[in-house]
Structure formats: structure tokens, C-alpha cells
């Protein structure tokens, strides 16, 4: 029976009959892990967001009051605006600079692997350690940045200590740290463009600028979209550098959503309230990702 069935279906089912069994066996650890540490938490988190859970006593159902609270008390809205500020500040500029870096690293000259390392090293070290280095560089009285500015006769602001400058300071540091990561992804994208396209364009008499706008830019677009999407998701979840460099301050100038969630969940023990904020963040990230994917699809159709 099995033999004849196999003989008939041979081209469709070349492997043994226990394939399904082994498929699930090999997937089992990941499925268990996914259920325990992702699926269940996602559901439980939604439940917590509807309770007054404090991390210790049993959660009590309170309906939507956490959500009403967070939209009314202003602190969440403020943090959300800060997160948007941070995201808009880091993502487009960071991606643009990364493209320039990728183009520079794609030129056929010697020592490229050394140059690539210089851009790349910032992204392999921990945010905690490198954020401290930047904190010291931003120091108002003795930091490197103000020493240079002072030598040029320019004003020496308190970078992380002023409300207007704290966020731009963190943004600059974050762009610097992510540059190599995105640069390497875009570099791989550039190297994936077939050289024959450029050769053909050159024969047709296209200038270097035309080759860039007509070949490089359209061909790099999918990679660029990927970089924008992942950087955006990362930026909306920024935490480490804020925790180290400013603790959300001065005042609340750099209090981004994830910092506020952390503080509420693990310092003030308002875990129900923190879960509600996390869910709003989830929805925002999801919606923004879908919009971005739709936009990139539409663009690639044109």
C-alpha cells in the first residue's frame, strides 16, 4: 500500500513518510519556547493592562481605566511625543548617512576593510559603556566637544543638561552608533546590484549622476526600506542610552515611552498601567510597520 502510493506520488513526496512527525519534533523546542515566552505573555499582558496589577498582589479587573488614565494624565502623551522626536531625529538622517557610508565603502580602493571596521566598531560594543563615553564627551566644563567648540570661539552649551539640547545629543550619539550597522546592510545591497547594469548605462552615455539616480537608487530601495523599518522599530524601543545618559531628564525632556514603561513597571510597580502603555506602543509599532511595508510595495509597483 505504502509502496504503491509512493511509486505514484514519487515526484511530489520524495522523502520518507515520517517527515511530518520529524518536522514537529524538530520544531517542538521553538514552539514550546514561543508559547511560554511570547504567546502567553502577549495575552497575559493584554489582561494585565485591564487590571490594577502591582506585581505582588492579585490583579483586579478595572476595565479600560488604565487606558483612559494614560490618555488623560499627559505623561504618556509627552513620552510618546519624545519617542516620535527621537525616531524622526534618528531614522531618516541615520539611514541617509548610512547610504553615504555604504557608497564610500563600495568604491574599489585599498584598505576598505580597515575603513569598514572604523564604522562598524561602534555598533558591536554595549550601549551602556559607550553611552558613558559620550556622557563624558558631552560634559559641559571639561568634555571634548565643548573644548573643541571653545577653541573655535563658539558657545559651550550644557549638552545633556539643557532641555532643548538633551534629545539632540542622544540622537547624535544613537546615529553614530547605528551608522556601521545600517551601512553594512546597505553595502551588501549595493554589492548585489549587477555590474552589467552600470556597464550598459555607461555604453549608453549615462553620466555618473544619472547612473546613481537611475540605477543605484531604485535598486537599493528594498534594502533601504528594510533599514528604515528596522531602525524605526529599534528607535521606538530605545532604552539603554536614555537610562544611562539622561534618565529621562532634564525634567522630562528625554523621557521616551520605553523608559516610562520600565519605570512604571519595575520602579513604581504600576504593572497594569505599564502593560497598557506597552500595548499602545505595540499597536503603534505594528501600524507603522504595516504602513511602511504598504508604502514600499506601492513604490515598487510604480
Amino acid at each position: 500500500m505504502t509502496n504503491s502510493a509512493r511509486a505514484v506520488k514519487k515526484p511530489r513526496k520524495p522523502l520518507g513518510t515520517n517527515e511530518t512527525f520529524w518536522g514537529y519534533v524538530f520544531l517542538a523546542p521553538v514552539i514550546i519556547g514561543f508559547l511560554v515566552f511570547t504567546a502567553v505573555p502577549v495575552v497575559v499582558s493584554l489582561y494585565y493592562s485591564l487590571t490594577n496589577y502591582d506585581g505582588i498582589t492579585d490583579p483586579k479587573f478595572v476595565g479600560f481605566s488604565n487606558y483612559i488614565d494614560l490618555f488623560q494624565n499627559g505623561e504618556f502623551g509627552h513620552a510618546l511625543l519624545n519617542s516620535v522626536y527621537f525616531t524622526v531625529g534618528t531614522v531618516p538622517l541615520g539611514a541617509f548617512l548610512a547610504l553615504l557610508v555604504a557608497i564610500l565603502l563600495n568604491q574599489k580602493i585599498k584598505a576598505q576593510s580597515l575603513y569598514r571596521s572604523a564604522f562598524f566598531i561602534p555598533c558591536i560594543v554595549s550601549y551602556v559603556a559607550i553611552a558613558m563615553v559620550w556622557q563624558w564627551m558631552y560634559n559641559q566644563d571639561y568634555g571634548l566637544i565643548n573644548s573643541v567648540l571653545g577653541a573655535m570661539g563658539l558657545p559651550q552649551p550644557g549638552w545633556l543638561a539643557t532641555e532643548e539640547l538633551a534629545m539632540p545629543s542622544v540622537i547624535i550619539m544613537t546615529i553614530w552608533k547605528g551608522l556601521g550597522y545600517n551601512g553594512v546592510i546597505l553595502l551588501a545591497g549595493l554589492q548585489g546590484i549587477s555590474p552589467s547594469l552600470y556597464e550598459a548605462a555607461e555604453i549608453d552615455g549615462a553620466s555618473a549622476i544619472q547612473r546613481f539616480t537611475r540605477i543605484t537608487l531604485p535598486m537599493i530601495r528594498p534594502t533601504m526600506m528594510f533599514v528604515l523599518l528596522t531602525s524605526m522599530i529599534g528607535a521606538l524601543q530605545a532604552f539603554d542610552q536614555i537610562y544611562i545618559m539622561t534618565s529621562g531628564g532634564p525634567g522630562r525632556a528625554t523621557e521616551v515611552v520605553c523608559y516610562l514603561i520600565y519605570m512604571n513597571a519595575f520602579q513604581y510597580f504600576k504593572q497594569g498601567y505599564a502593560s497598557a502603555m506597552a500595548y499602545i506602543l505595540f499597536i503603534i509599532i505594528f501600524a507603522a510597520s504595516v504602513i511602511q511595508l504598504k508604502v514600499s510595495e506601492k513604490n515598487s509597483e510604480l
Binding site: 515566552f37 511570547t38 505573555p41 494585565y48 522599530i233 514603561i261 520600565y262 500595548y279 505595540f282
Partner: peptide, 14 residues
């Protein structure tokens, strides 16, 4: 795509 913030509180409990 799921942010860590969404799962961290229940993960702590688990």
C-alpha cells in the same frame, strides 16, 4: 515585531 516591553512583565511572572 513584538516589542520586549509587551512581554517583559508576564515573562517576569513566568
Amino acid at each position: 515585531m513584538i516589542p520586549f516591553q509587551v512581554v517583559m512583565i508576564p515573562q517576569f511572572k513566568i
